[in-house]
Design a binder for these strands. Structure first.
Lengths: 336, 336
DNA sequence: CTGAAAGCGCTTACAG
DNA sequence: CTGAAAGCGCTTACAG
């Protein structure tokens, strides 16, 4: 492998000059530049990223920390992150935490010693101490969904509460009169906020009861189990709002197994807008977040921060959108 | 950030000694070792990975090149790769190629200059020249599914031909008498081999016709379109073998939209065994590859190669397994 | 506009 | 068992 020294020798200049044309900074005479570029061509020279990183204090690497890449929501986010990163010349390192605090700690340490230029957190276990530590280590940070309390940091998130209310209004509008909720883990901001949105939207109704709420761990299995319990407990339920699409998918499957027509007898709506909502028959109505946009925006913000743009430590809230499809009444023919 | 120098000073030894205890190589007196470890503790010292990489010629980084992380098959693979890598102290860099040769070339260059310790290719566009180049650059390589012709390299793959035949046999066993095939891109090994397996299994039947084969691009959309065409062209089809699960999922959706009972009138089977095959009702029968195992095995082999273990450039073939579930006849109650 | 030199934070023979 | 020193391949003030 050719080094910058070889190029310098061949072009009969100093390594400093080669470095200048390489990075396009500092003045360099046009002819000199051409000589250097020819040498680079000839030697097929490619700069060593590590040496560059060590000398220049930049690695052009981003760490993406998420619970599980095989969860379709996060793989869509990851795709967006990598696309944008690639556009700006950054490389993405993948970290699966399984929402396990220990694993997350390990990764934070590992990424710190790798001197990643920035971190993107889409995991729920980030604590205030971690944020502080990263600040101290001078590693820019963008958090998805949830900021630890009392520490300033950049957050990109969706309007969960509003989305939940949108879901309930849609179910009411399409004739539902007894609406249950399958909720996600209450340690997560998304799980909690959507549950609160549901409660706020329905608690004034005479039919409201806490027994209309059932946890589903944000998973397909959890959604199936929750739907089964709910229908057993309240056979007159005619609408279900699931806190994410995975649980809604599980609920749909269970309802179909039980022979309960969707949306004929029970309307069903999820939250997130992952691609999978389109693979079932009927297609799943959902409150869609702009998943790709969230990942892309977060990455752009992170890169800006890395490149020294002063950003307020604010929260970027993304709009959510009702996708009325086959699984809610009046939309059986929609989305085809 | 403390450096190795700070540690050396505090422990009153040389940096060489610190390096030795850090890497646990070379002799070092027990008491000295303890002194050093205490200093490390005190200073909260963490070695700089880049400096280590530059000096030691190792980055402990693996590049994972795949078409698209948001494809569930690849996100399952990625999860396995990262798990194993993490276990051995390696970090994984993500590269989405969209099966685009240009993007792939770019990534190969970028990863080369980053001096990744090894590459895992799960993309179909790898060419013989690339393999040779990586060999020359001394970057160990493991390929998933497909090896370019005429160049030695390590390949991990599944028994596609055999799997296709297993699928056809299952359809025949459960009473199908006219079986169609939705096939994947013929530039891919998987797409091609499964199509060949299908042809070999059915061509001796009197009902066989080339018009029973329809391309579906390995996608849900493609699967839907293909299923529609097939049923229009041959309304008497009573079994469909799709070359992957995504296309099978698309076919299932289309059949349900058309009001064609599955498996009542048409039995359906996919290939891959992704998790999504369980979310539909009926669940999808499929020829399962051990996806996680494939990713894990490939990563272990790659790490062995990196660590200097001599490996034959052979092909590791994984077994496939018939998962008979609700979408094929006689299994309507299976898998619940 | 260009070069010499120091330095980034490690590892690794080589002496001792 | 331990240290001095060279070197990994770059960048970046500092002179000129």
């Amino acid at each position: 492998m050719a080094t910058i020294r070889d190029v310098a020798k061949l072009a009969a200049v100093s390594v400093a000059t080669v470095s200048r044309v390489l990075n396009n900074n500092g003045y360099v005479n046009k002819e000199t530049k051409e000589k250097v570029q020819q040498a680079i061509q000839l030697l097929q020279y490619e700069p060593n990223t590590m040496a560059k990183g060590l000398a220049g204090k930049k690695t052009e690497t981003l760490a993406l920390v998420l619970p599980d890449i095989s969860n379709p929501f996060f793989s869509e986010v990851a795709r967006a992150v990598e696309d944008v990163a690639q556009l700006y010349g950054y490389t993405v390192v993948l970290c699966n935490t399984d929402s396990d605090t220990d694993k997350e700690q390990t990764y934070i340490q590992v990424m710190k010693r790798r001197y990643v230029d920035g971190m993107l957190f889409a995991s729920n276990t980030l604590r205030a101490a971690d944020v502080l530590m990263l600040n101290k280590a001078n590693i820019p940070l963008v958090v998805l969904d949830r900021a630890p309390a009392n520490v300033p940091c950049l957050v990109v998130r969706s309007k969960n509460n509003e989305g939940a209310k949108l879901a309930i209004r849609h179910l009411l509008d399409t004739g539902c009169r007894r609406i249950a909720h399958i909720y996600g883990p209450q340690e997560t901001a998304t799980g909690k906020e959507r549950l609160i949105g549901y409660e706020e939207a329905v608690r004034s109704f005479p039919w409201y009861s806490p027994t209309l709420m059932e946890p589903g761990q944000f998973s397909i299995q959890g959604g199936m189990a929750a739907a089964e319990k709910l229908m057993e407990r309240h056979p007159d339920i005619d609408g279900i709002f699931a806190g994410n699409d995975l649980m809604a998918l599980g609920a749909l499957k269970k309802l179909q197994q039980l022979g309960i027509p969707v949306p004929g007898r029970v309307s069903l709506i999820g939250f997130d807008g992952i691609e999978l909502t389109r693979i079932t028959e009927p297609e799943l109505s959902t409150i869609a977040q702009p998943i790709y946009e969230i990942g892309a925006t977060a990455t752009r913000l992170l890169i800006k921060k890395i490149e020294g743009v002063q950003l307020e430590n604010e929260t970027y809230e993304c709009e959510v959108e009702l996708m009325a499809r086959g699984s809610t009444r009046g939309n059986a023919e929609a989305g085809r």
